[in-house]
């Protein structure tokens, strides 16, 4: 028996919005530790890694490890039926081929449930090696979304260059070039509004705008985003989900042919 009750169905909806551009379907791996998801997009250029800790749920019970393959468009339809203040309870029997979502309004005045068919997905899991990153940049998630959106108008790729002076995002295309430089801020009182750079050595890498834009769909989950860069290693774009876990995206860099 699997049962997980989350105080805010809206949080799960945000998670779903943040991954459904990249993934058509995905397996949710449920264990005592919580719910994990790891999946590559169709082109295998990016990897999504979601971790929702069991203690972030109001109630969590997982008698046996369970993998639930779901079509994310269908799952979105289910969550479109929830109210913004509803709680959600996810339930599945061991070896079941369906999962049930129950939405409860705050005062119990409305309770709805939806049963969805599960899928058998051939999901491969990749080992992600520990990396000593050259640069770790923390910045407001809204600022990152804005920069990626702005620069995507001009080119297909963004170069992220980081030195101890700051971080620079650059693009070039048919009509010209664009650059955005962010200096480190000293506003340590408000960490989620600051730009914080932890640099071991300078790094400059090129990434696809399309994927970066998809990652910024996670912006509503967190005020802050962390970018971790290192030569010859995928970029990590990490959003912490307060009190619940994290959503990480990995993106292979573009390299000179």
């Amino acid at each position: 028996m699997f049962e997980a009750r989350l105080a805010s169905s809206a949080t799960f909806k945000k998670v779903l919005d943040a991954i459904k551009d990249l993934l058509n379907e995905a397996s949710f791996d449920c264990s005592d530790a919580g719910i994990q998801l790891q999946a590559m997009d169709n082109s295998h250029v990016s990897l999504v890694s979601l971790n929702l800790k069991s203690d972030g749920f109001e109630k969590y019970r997982c008698d046996r490890n369970l993998t639930m393959g779901m079509n994310l468009a269908s799952l979105s339809k289910v969550f479109r039926c929830s109210g913004s203040d509803d709680t959600v309870t996810i339930k599945a029997q061991d070896d079941a081929d369906t999962v049930t979502f129950m939405f409860e309004a705050k005062k119990q005045e409305k309770i709805s449930d939806y049963e969805m068919k599960l899928m058998n997905l051939d999901q491969e899991h990749l080992g992600i090696p520990e990396t000593e990153f050259s640069c770790i940049i923390k910045l407001p998630s809204g600022e990152f979304a804005r920069i990626v959106r702005d620069l995507s108008q001009f080119g297909e790729s963004i170069v992220i260059s980081c030195t101890k002076e700051g971080v620079k995002f650059s693009t070039q295309g048919d009509i010209g070039t664009g650059n955005v430089k962010l200096a480190q801020t000293n506003n340590f009182d408000k960490e989620d509004q600051s730009v914080i750079i932890d640099m071991q050595e300078p790094v400059s890498l090129t990434f696809s705008c399309e994927y970066l834009n998809s990652f910024t769909k996670a912006t509503p989950l967190s005020n802050q985003v962390t970018l971790s860069l290192c030569d010859n290693v995928p970029l990590v774009v990490e959003y912490q989900i307060p009190d619940l876990g994290h959503l990480k995206y990995y993106l292979a860099p573009k390299i000179e042919e």
């Binding site: 082109s43 990749l126 010859n232 292979a252 573009k254 390299i255 042919e257």
Partner: peptide
């Protein structure tokens, strides 16, 4: 020309 690598060029299947 910049070539797009894939994630599998970096991370191996478990």
């Amino acid at each position: 020309v910049r070539h797009q690598k894939t994630i599998k060029d970096y991370f191996k299947t478990k």
